[in-house]
Amino acid sequence: MLLGFLVLIAIAAIRLRDLFAVVMLFGVYSLLTAALFMDLDAVDVAFTEAAVGAGVSTVLMLSGLRLTRRWEEAPGHRPPLPLMVVAVTGAALIYAMLDAPPLGDPTAPVHQHVTPYYIEQTPLEVGVPNIVTAVLASYRGYDTFGETVVIFTAGLAVLLLLGVGGGHSFRPGENAIGDQTVLKPVVKTLIPPILLYGLYVQFHGDFGAGGGFQAGVIFASGFVLYDLAFGEGNARAVVPPAWLHRLAALGVLIYGGVGVYALFAGKAFLDYSALSANPVAGQHAGILLVEIGVGITVFSVVLSIFYAFSGRRRKS
């Protein structure tokens, strides 16, 4: 059922030339994907896809669209080469699927090797109920460190391309979507719960779905909302753009710092057991610290990218 909708959206995305509609469809696609992930027991992924894929990506694409054009030009001749490449690739994928273990098969290698160790050992070695968090932040914590650096890199790249965004030229009170008398009180009441929820997600990741990534996004979205409703400049007064990239750097350094600390304590890089005499307590502390680093970097990069896009005026 969900997959059927996804297919329809994909076809529509190919055919439509109104890019605004295409981007909105992309948002719906991400949201449906998130629902599909829920269905497949991937709660953390669903949460992230909804926040990052449907939320951040769509907002970014809309701000990108604002600075370019809404309508795609009528396509010229369509060369046959792309269709052939796609056909060959698709055939290779279907070929691959013929020997793939069927969906949900408990004898599939994925469920036989490595995974059982995580499921059995997480409560003993890491001591957090959410196995995804344990694997993410500890067993494969180095991947997540790399991921934090990827976000930092993206923030840096946008900064290099578009600059800090706005700066002094913004009058407080001038906003992107016009004067919204109805929206303002709604936003005003919404923001405190959003920020609170962000904090909850940040620190509750050990137990349920959530963690630094989702929290950073939610926190940033609170500011974005404020910015949209109350005008550029107001949110910038609370968190100046110039500070954001320093904050992003700080987040990476917090994560890396935990690793380097372990290194000087005579353990491997990112070995959290160096943080405490009791290894499980060390894991707890380590996960908490690195998630804070992740949260700070994600928050500041998402917000700074939003500033960079919204601070730019269309030239043509």
Partner: peptide, 20 residues
Amino acid sequence: PLPHVLILTAIVVGVATTAV
């Protein structure tokens, strides 16, 4: 949990690429 972890990473990488 392992594919979930990998995809969490990949989602973030994807949005980073989109932004750039």
